[in-house]
Write a protein that binds this DNA or RNA. Structure first.
Lengths: 167, 167
DNA sequence: GTCCCTGCAAACTATTTGCACCGGG
DNA sequence: CCCGGTGCAAATAGTTTGCAGGGAC
């Protein structure tokens, strides 16, 4: 899709942000954290702890679940990762900070996840919150349905289907 | 709020639907199921398994978690209950079937839950799904923020705050 | 009487934590 | 060196399941 050189630059920038955060908090930069963060930044989609553990173990075979959880928590704290809880299973994480806000459209058959953004809805949400006297902090908006392929449309496919079709 | 006589009618009607479903499925109507369903229908808000267990035990002291879970699963199957998973904690359930669709506005301080419905957003969701070739089946839309009371507005309060402020 | 249902406890899944040792600054 | 980090295993939280006995139809 995008070529390797460009991605590497991106990952480097994110790693730098991560290291800056660690330093600021008086925390240490370790091999495990670096491996996990690098692998995480290199994924484009919505990645589970289990997947990240497997990826990290390619570089550092002995890392355990706990370290992955702890590292993703750090990444979430500094705004470089965002937790997403679709369906029933485990939490997945997506890179954040670089990209702007978006919501999700999920196929209930193939579990593929697409992203969308709609200003009209964003505005409407604000209006609703305000009308109840609320200060809107964040929201969660997920659309579940059947992608063209799942509906059996001939030649149909989820846009970007091939990218990262999980489990 | 509403008076007791009116609520009773409502609960009766829902119980009837529940019994109809059980019969249709060749399942049995038992004291435990009735107690749990009645108590559930009598709550207005978003109720957790734990709360339902406590309520059910007022009528039938020996019911266990498993029965409550199993009964709520039945109620969900027949469309009389809907699972809701806000925040981190346990799943809560709300009565469905009688009321029309709505989404939720949750105060992150006091955990109070309000309901809203906005046609514009519903339409926009459909449009978005269609634009990706999706068949929209269901969605999840939750707004998290601070209610007037939580923001410290003098005299402010969540609309309906007193009704059912959980945990 | 036949199955379904129930309560209990054990199993499970996803995540967190305690602890002894390891390693970055 | 010091103190935070790591791996492992055990602990937790929420929910599900297996099983022996009980109850609905």
């Amino acid at each position: 899709m995008a070529d390797a050189a460009e991605q590497t630059v991106d990952v480097d920038a994110l790693m730098e942000q991560f290291h800056a955060y660690l330093t600021k908090q008086g925390l240490k930069s370790t091999r495990q954290r670096d491996v996990i963060a690098e692998r995480f930044f290199a994924t484009d989609g919505h990645t589970s702890i289990e997947e990240l553990l497997a990826l990290a173990r390619e570089d550092a075979p002995k890392v355990g679940y706990a370290t992955v959880y702890r590292t993703l928590k750090l990444l979430t704290e500094c705004g470089l990762a965002a937790e997403r809880r679709f369906g029933e299973g485990q939490t997945t994480y997506e890179t954040a900070g670089d990209t702007e806000h978006h919501d999700h459209l999920i196929c209930i058959e193939c579990n593929h996840v697409l992203e969308f953004h709609n200003e009209e809805i964003e505005r409407e949400q604000e209006r609703i919150a305000r009308s109840f006297g609320f200060n809107l902090i964040r929201h969660r908006h997920e659309l579940y349905g059947l992608c063209p392929r799942a509906r059996g449309i001939k030649g149909g496919s989820c846009p970007g289907q091939d990218a990262n079709n999980k489990k």
